[in-house]
Design a protein around this nucleic acid. Structure first.
Lengths: 159, 159
DNA sequence: TTTTTAGTTCTTGTGTTAGAGAACTAAAAA
DNA sequence: TTTTTAGTTCTCTAACACAAGAACTAAAAA
């Protein structure tokens, strides 16, 4: 059974450009180039669900690159997939929701940062008053910011 | 003129551990291992100012590693230096302030992200209503978050 | 003038990452 | 039973980042 070329999942120039731009941004957030492009494709394309091989074809990636990219994105919960009755293949889609979740988790990283800053402050000589005060102000600012930011996120939806 | 060992800038165990921990966190924020340790040293040590060679000695870094680390940190404005009358060497210190600045600049990265998201939304087919609505909610959430976060930062100091 | 100081820049080695391609696997179809 | 599908895993290579050490430089000291 050979495949008929349907041009179904063809992208236009603008979409290609947006996938690249989105990809670059995502790389800066720590994704590999391939993972960033896959995520871009699933975000930009009009087609909402892509199979493994469609992703491969459209982005010209090797099987291993595709496999690894998909699994990273699944682990990070950036994408999900569903299956269809009587088919084995998976249909991958972008998870646009739970951005709020990710933002909240992002804040937790600062929590850890601040924990270390407080420990640094705690063990310092009391002699460097000026410096210590600045350090203390910083830790307080971070506590304040994280608390307020959490509130901001919670408020969204019911304002 | 040979150098007498003064043990002046010796660190205790706790300080060493904190420099390493702080360093790891900073690496996650994109610094090279050496730059992260230098920044850690200048943050943790009781001694507030270190010369090039003191940094080298305490952290056992090569000249090139030290030089590159210092210059990255200067460029990023994580550290500064001053000089003393009649001396050529520079005394480096941690810039603890302008954290607010950095936070604000951090928000700008999301601004760019969101700009791209809006462009993605703008060029999408109107057919995928559900998806488009989610995407729109996301861009609105990000606008809202950034605005509020900016406000939070501005409010600090005069509450 | 020569030497020392305070670095910077260049060269080289090492380790890590990303991804291609091939080999492999497990389930379903033929 | 053999083949196809839908991937995963392994091997290998190219590219790159980090840092050591040597060579270099410009200003100050001797």
């Amino acid at each position: 059974m050979h495949r008929i070329c349907t041009m179904k999942n063809q992208l236009n120039k603008k979409q290609e450009e947006l996938i690249e731009r989105y990809g670059v941004i995502q790389e800066q957030f720590g994704l590999s180039p391939a993972a960033a492009r896959v995520n871009g494709l699933l975000t930009v394309a009009d087609q909402l669900e892509f199979t493994f091989d469609e992703i491969r074809d459209v982005l010209s990636l090797s099987k291993s690159a595709t496999s690894n990219a998909i699994n990273t994105l699944l682990t990070l919960d950036y994408i999900g997939y569903r299956t269809k009755m009587g088919e084995r293949k998976r249909y991958f889609y972008s998870k646009l929701d739970q951005w709020k979740d990710k933002m909240e988790k992002g804040l937790n990283r600062y929590q850890e940062y601040n924990k270390t800053m407080k420990e640094i402050l705690a063990q310092r000589t009391p002699e460097t008053t000026d410096y210590n005060n600045k350090l203390e102000e910083l830790t307080q600012f971070m506590d304040y910011y994280m608390q307020e930011a959490q509130q901001i996120i919670k408020n969204w939806g019911n304002l």
